[in-house]
Amino acid sequence: MTTEFTPWASLAGGALIGLAAVLLMALHGRILGVTGILGGLLRRGNPADWSLRAALVVGMITGPLLLWAATGAMPSTEAPVPPLAIAVGGLVVGIGVSYGGGCTSGHGICGIARFSRRSVVATLVFMISTFATVYLVRHMMGGL
């Protein structure tokens, strides 16, 4: 299934993601990593810390809904793979990011932006791994 190349929307959306990361560091002194935020929500830590993470998640969910209210169009969020692949993928992602210490937002954006060598390595590894997985699935296994 093809998707349309959206250079300007992607640049603008990316800039907003970067802005959110900078604001979280400027105001709260924290890395905007969704793995870390979710992982912290699942542990019972200090309540002030927990409520901060919860507020971030509620905001994240609200953002696309505001866009929907403003434009009347909700972007597609449908994965072009069967439910079993989504379930297995979710489990594998959860384990991987726990050990890898972060995902696209934490390592890929925040980590690289502060020139963390760990994050540069992690990002290179997961990008290569994702390219290889998609190639294997789509071009050697004939899709899922």
């Binding site: 299934m1 998707t3 959206t6 929307a9 992607s10 603008a12 959306g13 990316g14 800039a15 907003l16 993601i17 970067g18 802005l19 959110a20 990361a21 604001l23 979280l24 105001l27 709260h28 905007l32 002030a48 409520s51 901060l52 507020a55 971030l56 998640v57 509620v58 905001g59 994240m60 969910i61 609200t62 953002g63 696309p64 505001l66 866009l67 972007p75 597609s76 969020t77 449908e78 994965a79 072009p80 793979v81 696209t104 998609v134």
Partner: peptide, 28 residues
């Protein structure tokens, strides 16, 4: 603290939606 965090979450969520990161078909 919670209001600023909420606002930052909204900006992030808007960015993910506008950029296309929200769409797994586009990501794949």
């Amino acid at each position: 603290r919670l209001i600023t965090a909420l606002g930052i979450g909204v900006i992030f969520g808007l960015g993910i939606a506008i950029s296309g990161m929200i769409n797994p078909a586009k990501v794949l």
